[in-house]
């Protein structure tokens, strides 16, 4: 508006006019300020030799020393690679399993059968990784585990699963699929339910078999959803699943070679070793690169399908 007689409508006017609404939003705004924006200055710790006693303002600045130490050690390479590799495994196999489940459920017509099986398949999703780690232990424990019992029945030697790091990417991937495939398949089933039924009807009239309907109609129409969800999860590839990996692997040093990810490393540096500066250095690296990737993947997803992007 060009009229100069009215003063500019600023946020203060807005707050006064809608004070009740703003009052309602206040707790959330404060929360986002405190646990969002006000945490950003603490990232300076990465350039300091941080001391809990003197605090953020009076700790000694050391420039890029923390990064130097950190990029010179081979550890950073290992944990970054582990994070990416494990996430790639998780994304690939969870997506494939969820897709397969959705397509298979789509073929079935008996509602009760679908309901019961779906309820069973989705149950693990609600469990915490701590509980899951107990289940893994009951399967893989060297002395008592079910799998070693089966191995001994089959005549082979028991395997010390918890003493060999090479098995764990596979075990973690299997448990990931076990926990997440059900809930992910629901998203694909919702997409399938949204497919225009005239496509299928036309194909049936043309004499298409069910396999052909699945291959040439359902799957292609499902692909946009699949690619966007995959894209979004690739955006988060630098963020390791701390809740999962720490609950399962814990402080078992033998398994760290293949399972240590950025998030568990940061946790150990901060809480076990007590070196916030080192933890923050890799944390900063993860935050910056991770942000670019999340932002980029979202922008790309938005380009592919304006409705689908997360933000």
């Amino acid at each position: 508006m060009k009229t100069q007689c009215r003063r500019k409508y600023t946020i203060f006017h807005d707050i006064i006019r809608n004070r009740a609404s703003y009052l309602m939003g206040l707790p959330a705004i404060l929360y986002a300020l405190i646990f969002g924006y006000f945490t950003y200055p603490y990232m300076i710790i990465a350039f300091q030799k941080f001391n809990y006693r003197t605090g953020l303002l009076n700790s000694e600045f050391v420039g890029f020393k923390n990064f130097e130490f950190f990029f010179r050690s081979s550890q950073v390479f290992t944990i970054t690679l582990n994070t990416i590799w494990l996430n790639l495994l998780f994304i690939t196999f969870t997506t494939l399993a969820a897709l397969a489940l959705a397509l298979m459920f789509n073929e079935l017509r008996n509602r009760y059968f679908i309901r019961i099986n779906q309820a069973m398949i989705m149950f693990p999703n609600y469990l915490s990784w701590v509980v899951v780690s107990f289940m893994i232990y009951s399967l893989f424990s060297t002395n008592y585990g079910l799998i070693n019992q089966i191995l001994s029945v089959l005549g082979s030697k028991p395997i010390a699963w918890y003493n060999n790091a090479d098995y764990w990417p596979a075990i973690l991937t299997i448990m990931r699929v076990w926990k997440g495939a059900g809930i992910n398949s629901v998203i694909y089933m919702a997409t399938i339910a949204g497919i225009d039924s005239t496509y299928v009807e036309a194909a049936v009239i043309d004499g298409a078999k069910r396999w052909q309907i699945c291959r040439y109609i359902t799957l292609p129409l499902l692909m946009p959803t699949v690619s966007i969800l995959t894209l979004l999860s690739i955006g988060g590839i630098l963020y390791g699943d701390f809740g999962m990996i720490y609950a399962i692997v814990g402080d078992n040093g033998i398994l760290l070679r293949t399972t240590d990810v950025i998030d568990t490393y940061v946790f150990r540096a901060l809480r076990r070793i007590g070196d916030p500066s080192n933890a923050m250095a890799i944390g900063l690296f993860q935050s910056l690169v991770g942000f670019i990737m999340v932002y980029g993947s979202n922008a790309l997803a938005k380009k592919l399908n304006p409705d689908a992007a997360l933000y």
């Binding site: 939003g25 959330a28 705004i29 986002a32 405190i34 646990f35 969002g36 924006y37 006000f38 945490t39 950003y40 200055p41 603490y42 990232m43 710790i45 953020l56 998030d263 940061v266 946790f267 901060l270 916030p276 933890a279 923050m280 944390g283 900063l284 993860q286 935050s287 991770g290 942000f291 999340v294 932002y295 979202n298 933000y311």
Partner: peptide, 21 residues
């Protein structure tokens, strides 16, 4: 305001600042 909340969603300072806060 929506943008204000979006920013905290996509840019996360990480574990150490959260812990210090």
């Amino acid at each position: 305001l929506a943008l204000f909340f979006f920013v905290t969603m996509i840019f996360n300072a990480g574990l150490v600042p959260w812990y210090m806060m």
